[in-house]
Each structure stands twice: as structure tokens, then as C-alpha cells.
Design a protein around this nucleic acid. Structure first.
Lengths: 217, 217
DNA sequence: GCCTGTGAATCCATTCACAGCT
DNA sequence: AGCTGTGAATGGATTCACAGGC
């Protein structure tokens, strides 16, 4: 994604992963957690957990483990999820609507401040979350006014690139794209493409191989 | 995921990726595509494209390139996306509903045959796609009757594990889990965890670093 | 004794560079 | 000449194995 960093990208993704069971452990009153325990909960290798954390400091106590609360706080600080982020979303079909209402995002501090669509029939609709669907032509204006940092794209594939350009031009710095197409950006901006059917394709490939190995067994 | 295969998982994911622009090229009447062209469209290295394809056979013509139609057909055959798959979904909140209605899935042959929820207020609701929401206790019965192969989970985190167990026990062989928790399964079954807020966390980490490097510049 | 932190070793994936075919 | 297919080289990430501190 961005270059020049010494920290592997998989490490960043795993840090986010670690935070989920940590929250649960804290809630259940477990004060201390070992790399082994945490690794088991996330399905990774214990050494991996230790190495991931060691990139950012020494958070554990030898012979003891990690303080769950401290560790979670550190991870949140590292990922910058200890503050709120302002998002907008473009493309208010079913997926778009479901994301904008998503409680998980809100709880984690990802706040949608604007929702756009280019379909005139949708513009003006008041969503359950309180937002009103705005026309796509207001992207530039509202992104600036509301200081929106991240754009989420849930348009059809053929609109995704144009919307990306619009959003970046308006000042958005990062894009999460759900349209089933790779979206192109000028060097340094940050894009994550999440193609949900690619996930299914993956599943299906392995599933078919499983069937075949069962038949031959 | 499953072991014993010589083919890297990233290769499988890229094959799915390649198929998207291939469809577009075919539609626009381009009969031949080079690894360089295809690579550019997907943001990968040309040698990568050739190597990925070479795992499965020799699909190209030296000095010429790949026949777009043939290549797409081969990729679909490899991924087993040249047939339809039967899915069910558990958890009919906003996300669940949006997936079940998703046109992209249907077009690619991923067909939802049943939708479940445990909330009695939701049971019996007729969805736009034509399905009626069934109670979770009917999972076992319906999965068998409808020969459902893949289960999609869009429940809250605390129900995801129980639902996974139910689905696997009922005979589902693969699971796509959107609940924000790693779900645990007996060795050989196939699970893909897609935690959407992990994606945002990733974005946000890089975004914060971008801000910092801008400030120091 | 126990568990973290970490260099070294291993494993895996990507990229290079060129041989081979059209 | 052009572009694929592929062994060899490189570059990363994971895992091992143990030193270091509680």
C-alpha cells in the first residue's frame, strides 16, 4: 500500500484481529493474557503475536504475559482507532444502506456524515440513521464542509472509478471500495478493495477440491 | 486454509480478480489479451499473471497472448464458478438482507435458497428476493432438504460460533463469516472470515501515518 | 518455571531474465 | 519480433529456538 514502512501489512491486519478477543477477555474479567492464549483465539502462531507486538514496543512482562487492558489500549493507539473518523458513502443500494446503519462501525468510531447517490429517486430519502441521501454532485462541497476523511464506495462497478476520482479530488484521503472492480488512484492515496464475490470464489475453489478428494477417498 | 495443495492461496484470489476485467474486455470485443495488459488492469506484475495461470496449464500462445474468451472459461473452470452454488444465510439484519438481495452474487451463480434468523419478530417476513425468513431451528432440516453447500453468517458476534456449529452439523461444507469474530471449525471444513471493520482499521492506520508524514514534510 | 522479546532459519511468494515457440 | 512459460534469484513473512527477565 504505502511504501517505506518497515512493518508488514499482515501485521497491521492481525493487530485489528487481536483486539476483538481482547475486548471479550476484558469484559469477562481476564486481566492477563499470554501470547499463546491470544494466538489460539485468533488462530495464529504465538511467536507471530509476540513479533507483531514487538514491532511497536515491549508491552508484555516476561514470565507473566500481557495486561489485557494495556495491550488493547496500545493496539488502539497504534492503529489510531482510539479516535473517531468521519466517513461518507456513495451508492445507496442495499449494501450501502446496510453499511451506513451498521452498529459495529459506529461503536468503533467510524461515523458516516454523508450519504450520496446519483439516482434522483433516492435523493432526499431520510435514512433510519438520520442522514438524508444527497445527490452525487454535492460530494465535493460536503466532503470539504464536513471534513470527511474516508470514502466508502458501494456503487455499481461502472461508476466506481468516477466516484473514486470525485472523492479524491474533493479531499478524501482513503477509500474503501466494495464495487467489484479494482479502482485506480494516484500513487499515494490509500485504497482498499473488498470484492465480496472474490471471497466466495475462493471458498468455492476449495470446496470443489474437498468434494473431489472425498470422492477419491 | 486446506493443506496439501501446491497452489498458493494468493493465486486463487488473483484468478478471481483477473476474471473481472476479462469479462469487460470480452464485452468490448477484444479477442486477445497479453499478460502485460491483464496485469495492468489488475494492478499486478505481468510475470505474476503468467505464473498464476501456468499452475493450471498452458492457456496462452507464445508471441501472441491469451484468447480472452478461452482464458475466462478456463479460469471459471478452475475456480468452479462455471456452475451454480446453493447458499443460505443466517442473521437477517441490514447486512444479511443486503447480501441476500445482492445482484452480483446471483449473476455469478451464488443462489440463496434459505434465510434464517432467531428473532421471532423477523420470522415469516417475505423478502424482496422471494425468500421467507425461517427460524434458526429449521437450519438442520432445510440445509439438508435444499442441499445447501455454503453458509453465510451475518449474525452478531456472540451468535456466530453457535451458528457455525449448527451449519456444519447440518452438512454445510463452507462458511463465509461476516461477524466480527474468528469462527472456529473442525480441521477440514472451509471458513473465510470477513471482518469489515478490520478493513477500516487497516485504512485508518495508513491514513494516520500519511497525516504524520505530511506534517513533517 | 514461565513467558516475553528476538536473531537465525525456514518457508513461501513475487519478480527477474531468458529459453522456447509462433 | 513478440509474448508465453519457467527455473533461478530475490524479497518478505512466519516460525523456531533460545537468551533475557520475572
Amino acid at each position: 500500500m504505502t511504501k517505506g514502512s518497515k512493518i508488514p501489512n499482515p501485521t497491521i491486519e492481525r493487530l485489528a484481529l487481536y483486539s476483538r478477543p481482547l475486548e471479550a477477555l476484558i469484559e469477562s474479567g481476564t486481566p492477563i493474557v499470554s501470547s499463546e492464549r491470544l494466538a489460539a483465539l485468533c488462530g495464529v502462531n504465538p511467536a507471530q503475536v509476540r513479533k507483531d507486538l514487538a514491532y511497536f514496543g515491549e508491552f508484555g512482562v516476561r514470565g507473566v504475559g500481557y495486561d489485557a487492558q494495556d495491550l488493547l489500549r496500545e493496539i488502539k493507539r497504534i492503529l489510531s482507532t482510539d479516535r473517531e473518523w468521519t466517513l461518507c458513502i456513495v451508492g445507496m443500494g442495499n449494501l450501502g444502506r446496510s453499511l451506513v446503519e451498521n452498529e459495529n462501525f459506529r461503536k468503533r468510531g467510524y461515523l458516516f456524515f454523508a450519504a450520496f447517490d446519483s439516482d434522483t429517486k433516492k435523493i432526499g430519502i431520510r435514512l433510519p440513521c438520520g442522514l438524508t441521501i444527497e445527490p452525487a454532485r454535492k460530494i465535493r462541497e460536503l466532503v470539504r464542509e464536513l471534513k470527511i476523511e474516508i470514502g466508502v464506495i458501494t456503487t455499481p462497478a461502472h461508476e466506481a472509478q468516477r466516484v473514486t476520482d470525485l472523492l479524491l479530488d474533493a479531499g478524501v484521503k482513503a477509500i474503501l471500495n466494495f464495487a467489484p472492480i479494482q479502482v485506480w488512484t494516484p500513487e499515494c492515496s490509500i485504497v482498499e478493495n473488498v470484492d465480496l464475490s472474490v471471497k466466495l470464489e475462493n471458498l468455492v475453489y476449495h470446496l470443489e477440491r474437498l468434494y473431489k478428494s472425498e470422492k477419491s477417498a
